[in-house]
Amino acid sequence: MARSERRELCELMTTLGPDAPTLCEGWTAHHLAAHLHIRESDPLATVGVVMPFLKITDKRMHKLMTEMSFDDLVELVAKGPTGLSPFRIPVVDAKANSAEFFVHHEDLRRGGPYPVGPRVLPPQTDEILWNTAVGMAGFRLRKAKVGIILQRVRDGRVSDEQALVATGRTPVTVTGEPGELLLWLFGRESAAQVQLTGPANGLARVRSISLAI
């Protein structure tokens, strides 16, 4: 999945060009390409991703965008990490990049002025996204301090698959396809096609937390 999402995202960046908007506020496709490259191949900038208050990543992204053309930068992303990057290890690539590239692929697909719906994904990709969403939901939603259930949608229909990702009173159910649930958990609330149901106070708590990444 990580490899296919990387390939398709790079193809889309090339098609849309450096100035294409994304769902990441203030970022174009050029910013996105710079982010993806330094995340994998620039250890110092990676520290900045974890500790954004240092402003290291922003500076190194700006330097990279100034020194390198957009097309060359996209080509670097397509080739994958360089040097001794741990992302070159297949298992690390799969674990760390599947969700990352999927979300950024959707950032670019849905960043324009016109509505863009979800892609039709292979079953194995859908399963990876479901497992990833379930695995990260408890941590991402911990500040809500309410019960939260993820309700899976398959082929446009609500299935009987659920995951209890947080326990507590006033439970809230978040319903959507796995990819949409993941986008929501990554803070793309405006674009993710999910439905939240439950008591008003529970909904208010969930909607009050910041999920932005």
Rank of each mutant, 00 (worst) to 15 (best):
D155K: 14
W130H: 10
V74S: 10
A94N: 06
L54H: 07
L54P: 06
T132C: 01
K63Q: 12
V91K: 08
L64K: 11
D93N: 15
F139C: 05
K55W: 07
P118N: 05
G111L: 02
L129P: 06
H104K: 08
R154A: 13
L129I: 00
I148F: 12
L64V: 06
Q162I: 13
V91Q: 12
E127L: 10
R119W: 04
D160T: 04
V103T: 07
V153A: 03
V153E: 09
A96M: 14
M61P: 01
M68D: 09
A94D: 00
V74G: 03
A96L: 09
I149D: 03
A45K: 04
K63G: 01
G83Q: 13
Y114Q: 13
Y114N: 08
W130S: 01
L108K: 03
D42S: 02
R110F: 00
D126N: 12
R60N: 02
A45Q: 07
L76V: 08
A133V: 10
H104R: 05
F101Y: 15
A96C: 02
E100Y: 09
E40V: 04
D72V: 08
G156S: 05
R110M: 12
P123Q: 12
A96W: 01
R154L: 12
M51I: 15
D155Q: 15
S85R: 11
V158E: 15
F139A: 11
V146F: 02
P118G: 10
S41D: 14
G117E: 03
T46R: 14
T125A: 14
R60A: 08
K59W: 06
S98C: 09
F102S: 03
D93S: 15
P86W: 03
R152L: 01
H105P: 05
K143A: 12
R142N: 06
P43I: 08
V47L: 13
G135F: 03
Y114H: 15
A99E: 00
G117A: 03
P115Q: 12
L84M: 05
T57H: 11
F87K: 10
A99V: 12
V120R: 10
S69N: 03
S159E: 13
S41F: 05
S41M: 07
V91I: 15
S159L: 12
E75I: 01
L108G: 04
H62R: 11
P81K: 09
R154E: 13
P123Y: 09
M61W: 00
G111S: 00
H104T: 05
P81R: 07
V120Q: 14
D160K: 11
T66G: 11
R60T: 07
P122F: 11
M61N: 04
S85H: 06
T125W: 10
Y114L: 13
R110H: 10
D155N: 13
M65Y: 13
P90S: 12
Q151I: 10
E100W: 12
P115R: 13
Y114D: 14
